[in-house]
Design a protein around this nucleic acid. Sequence first.
DNA 1: GCTTGACTTAGACAAAGTCTATTGTAGGAT
DNA 2: ATCCTACAATAGACTTTGTCTAAGTCAAGC
Lengths: 138, 138
Amino acid sequence: MSDLLERLRGRGWRMTAQRRVVAEVLDGDHIHLTADEVHARAVAKLPEISRATVYNTLGEMVSLGEVLEVSTDRRAKRYDPNAHRPHHHLVCARCGAIRDVHPVGDPLTDLPDSERFGFTISDVEVTYRGTCPTCASA
Amino acid sequence: MSDLLERLRGRGWRMTAQRRVVAEVLDGDHIHLTADEVHARAVAKLPEISRATVYNTLGEMVSLGEVLEVSTDRRAKRYDPNAHRPHHHLVCARCGAIRDVHPVGDPLTDLPDSERFGFTISDVEVTYRGTCPTCASA
DNA sequence: GCTTGACTTAGACAAAGTCTATTGTAGGAT
DNA sequence: ATCCTACAATAGACTTTGTCTAAGTCAAGC
C-alpha cells in the first residue's frame, strides 16, 4: 500500500477518489513526474479527474510537506514523494533522467558568514548536472 | 562603460541599437532580471524594441557564455551578467531578493562515487534559501 | 552609397499553471 | 440510514512565460 497515502490519511486529510489516485500515482522511489504526467496517469485510473484537481492536490501535498517540488529543467515543475529523506538531484543534461542523491557533508557549512549578507538561511538545494551512462554510450 | 558590451564587441558581434540597450540594461553586480524586466527597461531606452528581440538577444548572450541563466524561483528565468566568476545564489523566500555568493570548497567532491549512478558530472548548481535582513525585521 | 545577409518586428502560437463560478460529495450530526 | 454543510472537484477561460514565422530593416564590407 501507498506510504504517501497512509501519511496523508494520518493527517486527517479528507479522502476522495481523486486524491487517492494522485497519491497512488506519485508513490515510489526516484519518481519525479510533472503535473501533466501525473494528470495523464491519474486519468488512466479515473477518467473524469480534471487538470485543476491534479494541480490543487499536488499543491496541497507540497504544503503539507509530504511531497517536494523540484525544478531540474527549466520547464515544468516535478513532484517528488520522497520528502522525508533530505536529498538532492542528479540530472542528465541529454535525456533528463533524474536520480535522488545524498552528498556527504552539509553545503550550509560551506557558506561563510561574510557571504550570507545578513540572511537567515533555512534550506539548500543542490542540482548536479551531467551525462547518464546510457546517453554517454550512445 | 559596460564591461559586458566590451566583451561582446570583442567577439565580432554585430552591434545594433537593440543589442546595445539589452547589454546596458544587464550590466552590473547582483543583477538578476527576468526577460520581461529586461524588456521593460530596454523599452524605456528604445521604445520600439520588441519582446522577441530581447529573448533572442538574451539567448545569444547565454550561448556566447557572457550571461548566465538562473532559475531561483519557479517562475521566469533570470539573467545574470556575472558569468566569469563561478558563483551560486542566495534567495530570500519572502521577497525574492537574490545575492551572488561564493561558498568555500567544491560541492562536486561531496558526491561519492556510489551516489553518481555512472553519470559523468559536469556542473553543480547550488541555491541557498532563507530570509533577508529586511524581511526578517519586518 | 549599394548590397546582402544578418537582425528586428508584430503578432500568432504553445506550454504550464491559476482562477472562478458551479456542481458534487465525504463524513459528522441526527 | 438519511440529511447537511463545508470542503472538494469540475470545465474552461485566463495569465504568464516563452517560441516561431514571414516580412521588413539595417550594419558593415565593398
